[in-house]
Design a protein around this nucleic acid. Structure first.
Lengths: 214, 214
DNA sequence: ACAAAAGCTGACCAAAGTGTCAACTTTCTT
DNA sequence: AAGAAAGTTGACACTTTGGTCAGCTTTTGT
């Protein structure tokens, strides 16, 4: 009764909030929560500072909005680990999808990394629980594969950590990754090579057949 | 002539600078460069703020001092990749040493990660060049092993990125790693299991012999 | 057309931050 | 012992920052 549900005028609001969020992702990623100034976000989004405050009550609110949105957007890349797939195929797709997401969302990836390094102060329990559940499901699938003799008996949890680490590194630590590859900047083809190397290494290891089972 | 070289009175200076650096590592790691306040460093080191400024001219100077010291301290862990070793042994030792260093120096590790994520603004060219050289040397060794048929033909640079990523993750993203392992905090034994899993996976892969060479 | 709702923003604070300094105490050196 | 050098620090100056607000303009529903 009091506040009628409207719709069309959601346009301006939507657009400006998107601009703020977009600028926020970039700057929070680079400076961390404490290091970010809203004046900078305002400038980057082309809005006056007071206008930013018209949409968000505080710096923390912008930050939290970004984090939650980010976690939700991950699930897509993670749908490949499912029991009806062969491990080789599943991991290949998983690694490719994760690297793809990372390459196309470097700022988000870095923002998340920044939040974790700084102690996961604003990562809500709900989000953590969600991540834990997804992991548990994946672990169960891998354990099934191991029981079926389709995989060697690796610790599934450490294995997933390896995959998270290896795929995120290219975005989070791009300057170092680029130096390591002797390139000025990473390009799409570098992500391709990364996908191949990670997949091959994970699946077959680096030792030739003659040296296996030592 | 002007400034005589002394020694014994280096004590107080040394001690206080160490206290400041130690506190700085912890706080810079958590807050990043922009997010860190010297008042906080002062408090954590038990010195009044003005005293901190007696030893360091600026926040930047403290930060740079830490970064340089940190890079130098890495080389020890990296001495295992040498041509007179067998790959299996070399990688096992490398992974163990890197994880050991990471576990014992989590704050430094995070500080470096933070610096890189924030754009490597204070990482000196000299330090980057040094890292590049070490990497080049390692790559050459691996290429030798591949040429000798001791390793499968993997891209050595991406392989090293995998190793850097996998070993650093446990310190840099500890909350996530702990969640992934279903533990409240990481302990020494988790680093042990990590070393085993990473080593086994890198060397042999995860597929059983029957599924190899598909 | 017009009132109400939504959107906008320059100007303004109070708090917090970096860095300075002059005066004081402690620690050498001889 | 006493002058010099090193170390200490409360108080201060100046800047930046998060956040507010009153009054303005634009958009929208009827």
């Amino acid at each position: 009764m009091a506040k009628a549900a409207r719709d069309p005028e959601e346009r301006i609001r939507e657009r400006n909030m998107r601009l703020i969020i977009k600028a926020g992702i970039e700057i929070f990623a680079r400076k961390g929560f404490d290091g970010t100034r809203i004046a900078e976000i305002a400038e980057a989004s082309g809005l006056p500072k007071a206008n930013v405050y018209y949409y968000f009550a505080s710096k923390e609110e912008i930050y939290k909005a970004i984090i939650s949105h980010l976690i939700a957007s991950w699930d897509d890349a993670l749908k490949y680990i499912s029991p009806d797939r062969e491990p080789a195929e599943a991991f290949r797709l998983y690694i490719k999808a994760k690297l793809d997401y990372t390459r196309k969302n470097t700022a988000e990836s870095r923002l998340f990394a920044s939040e974790i390094i700084q102690g996961a102060r604003f990562l809500k329990k709900k989000d953590r629980d969600h991540m834990r559940q997804v992991t548990d499901a994946h672990v169960a699938v891998v354990e099934g594969w191991i029981a079926a003799g389709k995989m060697l008996p690796v610790d599934p949890r450490h294995l997933f950590i390896m995959l998270w680490a290896s795929t995120q590194y290219y975005a989070d630590f791009e300057p170092i990754a680029a130096d390591g590859l002797k390139k000025p900047r990473l390009k799409a083809e570098d992500y391709e090579t990364a996908a191949i190397t990670i997949t091959e290494t994970i699946l077959k290891g680096i030792l030739p057949a003659s040296a296996q089972r030592s």
